[in-house]
Design a protein around this nucleic acid. Structure first.
Length: 472
RNA sequence: CGGGGUGUGGCUCAGUUUGGCUAGAGUGCUUGGUUCGGGACCAAGAGGUCGCCUGUUCGAAUCAGGUCACCCCGACCA
């Protein structure tokens, strides 16, 4: 047990803050609401980036880079979009001492830039589809901020695609949602609910928004990624037209989809425990750490070094040769969520063994040195899938069904989590539920269940089962 | 943006109520030594314009006004 980290039960918010600081994921900067991603935190993002990018490339997407500034007139081209984002954009009004004739906003998202560009480069059905993605940072002037979960500037990727027709755009929207779901579940070991957002929760300017939703340890939900179908709304606003095979002018149908550094907050809050971080091996900056014990003794350090070199061929491995106590090191790497720790000291070397310790369950295993590389791989896989199962169980344990407003409210107050309940589809009921319970509709899941035929709030005819929760 | 809280060596905090000598402790850091299988020990040392600004006062970490930042709860949002 690490003393410096507040226990989850005692104060979840403080636990979270302790973790991000003490494990050196971030530091605060002198700019309000902006965080410094330290090497350990940034390495997680780089791993996420690498894995996710592979998936994008595999499905035919190309990376581009757009400017970070958007002229005011361009931002204003699509009405709903600007209304959605205007309250939280940062404006550049001066270049040096000179006032700009048109102010520029720092991109809060890049739909408008992509649209303008697409209008210029798409002319024929032969130019379609356009499957672009960009990795960048965006700025949203949030009122309150929290590391990873909400910062003024954050890193993300935003995919923007243009298609010949509505069906293809819808297919792309769902394919990318599925990509995110697979990424969360396989790479991050985070189970997600796939579904559609209600109109109230929809992206500004979208025809339909889909999301993958995950559940944190404290029973609050976190939108882990979104995928939007824009229909031809943006195309009409920006004049993105092409000539089809029949020589007729058509508007393109577009999508956009994104995942941000916020997902690191989910990794922390889904897998972490009172000893600190627990990182899924696929994105852990350090997969195994070799800790020499009694390293001043003859032969220990050199054996530990050669073990490290062997492991490093296959896994992200470090050796800690600092003169700290072994016990200190054990705690340190536990706190940092390193999946596997390997202790090697005189006793082990004599027997031709080492001690392998799993972060996920604390199990200590004596392993023959000549088998250790292979076993490490197997155990990393076990941890990867074990974390998923554990998280899934947690989510299932915290998923409830409510049949009436009173029990709905009671569940959210006493045992926070996902609440499944029927909804008539009326935004007023949705707003009223939020007002009385603080919970929002997280999504209308693809996997529907017929819990009842009455809306949880008004008792009218129910149309959909919805996942509700308090959310980050 | 509303409500609450906090700013004092790197970190955690005491001191502020009731203004008063050279601002303390633990931990961390540096050096030397002894240790080393779950956060070691001894010794010596370095490190602070008390968030910032203005005021009150003979005198401000302490009082007043302002301001900035962070944390928590809410509203808004990825």
């Amino acid at each position: 047990m690490v003393e410096e980290i507040t226990s989850m039960r005692e104060d979840f918010a403080q636990w979270y803050t302790d973790i991000v600081k003490k494990t050196e994921l971030i530091d605060y900067s002198s700019v309000r609401g902006c965080m410094i991603l330290r090497p350990y935190g940034y390495a997680i993002w780089e791993n996420i980036q690498r894995e996710l990018n592979k998936m994008f490339v595999a499905s035919g997407h190309e990376n581009v880079y757009m400017p970070m500034f958007i002229p005011e007139s361009l931002l204003r081209k699509e009405k709903e979009h600007v209304e959605g984002f205007a309250p939280e954009v940062a404006w550049v009004t001066h270049g040096g001492d000179e006032e700009l004739t048109e102010k520029l906003c720092v991109r809060p998202t890049s739909e408008t830039l992509f649209c303008e560009h697409y209008a210029n480069i798409i002319h024929s059905y032969r130019d379609l589809p356009k499957l672009y993605n960009q990795w960048c940072s965006v700025v949203r002037w949030e009122k309150t901020t929290r590391p990873f979960l909400r910062t003024l500037e954050f890193l993300w990727q935003e995919g923007h695609t243009a298609h010949a027709d509505a069906d293809e755009a819808q297919e792309e929207t769902l394919r990318m949602l599925d990509t995110y779901a697979g990424f969360c579940e396989k790479v991050l070991s985070i189970p997600v609910i796939r579904g559609r957002k209600s109109d109230k929760e929809k992206f500004a300017g979208a025809k339909a928004t889909y999301s993958v939703e995950s559940l944190m340890h404290d029973g609050k939900a976190l939108q882990s990624a979104t995928s939007h179908n824009f229909g031809d709304g943006f195309a009409r606003a920006f004049g993105i037209q092409y000539t089809d095979k029949e020589n007729k002018l058509q508007y393109v149908h577009q999508t956009s989809w994104g995942m941000s550094t916020r997902i690191i907050g989910a990794i922390i809050m889904v897998h972490g425990d009172d000893s600190g971080l627990v990182l899924p091996p696929a994105v852990a900056p350090i997969q195994t750490v070799v800790i020499p014990v009694s390293m001043h003794k003859e032969g220990v350090l050199s054996r530990a070094e050669s073990l490290k070199a062997e492991l490093a061929e296959k896994y992200r491995t470090v050796i800690d040769k600092s003169d700290k106590q072994p016990g200190w090191k054990f705690s340190e790497y536990e706190m940092k969520g390193v999946p596997i720790r390997i202790e090697i000291g005189p006793r082990d070397i004599e027997k031709g063994e080492a001690v392998l310790v799993r972060r996920d369950n604390g199990e200590k295993i004596q392993i023959k040195l000549d088998e250790i590389s292979e076993k490490t791989g197997l155990i990393l896989n076990e941890i990867q899938s074990g974390l998923y199962k554990k998280a899934l169980k947690l989510r299932e344990d915290k998923t409830y069904i409510a049949a009436d407003p009173e029990s709905f409210k009671k569940i959210l107050e006493e045992t926070p989590g996902f609440v499944k309940a029927m909804w008539c589809g009326n935004p007023e009921c949705e707003a009223a539920i939020k007002e009385s319970t603080g919970a929002t509709s997280r999504c209308i899941p693809f996997e529907q269940e017929e819990l009842s035929d009455k809306c949880i709030y008004c008792g009218g005819r129910a149309r959909k089962m919805v996942y509700w929760a308090k959310a980050y």
